[in-house]
Amino acid sequence: MALVELRNVSKIYHLGGEEIRALDDVTLDIDEGEFISIIGPSGSGKSTLMHILGCLDSPSHGSIRLDGTMIQSANARELAAIRNRKIGFVFQFFNLLPKLNVAQNVELPMVYSGISGRERHQRAMAALEQVGMANRSQHRPSQLSGGQQQRAAIARALVNNPRIIFADEPTGNLDTHTGEAILELFRQLSSEGRTIVLVTHDPEIAAVTPRRIEIRDGKIAEKLDLTLAGLSPRGGRVPHEVHDQEPGA
């Protein structure tokens, strides 16, 4: 059984009588331990997909199973608990709380899972160690560079030991060099067995992951456009991915 099973998921927005299909009948499996990128041009529905996968949003149609739980029928409280324990988010704009220091930011998810102060601190320090930020634990986010902020955000995503980590354009706000270092960090986490989903519009970044899913106009593309990627696929899963998409799915 896959870690995430998405079946015929649609997300429809209504704007002034007009129907916008941000996601259109998406079916997708993500296995435990996969390092996967979701790629597509701006406005194609990547973030919408990630929000639904990440239990921040619920689909208009279709079903999602995450780690054995059907989440399209979960209520807001259950979704919050799932986000808290099973999911880690990394955002383009880091989204650290400016008034808290790095350690406190990393502790934040554990605050909402009712973990004691001492354990929180220990685990936050361990996570910061993992991303190479232990020596900055007392800094405010504003005292850090973009790359450092993103590392702190990754530590926050890791700290509750989630089943899956979603990163939405994690390098979008970083220079190339720093961005590469962050991608390297993700690759390393992946090699430690983490399940990571990278959302990006940049084929070069997508090229880092063994498996890529291209999304266009809310649909998973029939065929991965390798010329768009401009690179030869590294992982062996691309043909399988294309094969997965049954016609009419």
């Binding site: 990440g54 807001a76 409280r77 919050a80 986000r83 808290n84 989204n95 650290l96 709380l97 899972s113």
Partner: peptide
């Protein structure tokens, strides 16, 4: 608002 969004994303319930 943004802070509240972040807190919710990391698992804060509406009640919290």
């Amino acid at each position: 608002i943004r802070e509240i969004g972040i807190r919710k994303a990391v698992g804060a319930s509406a009640f919290a």
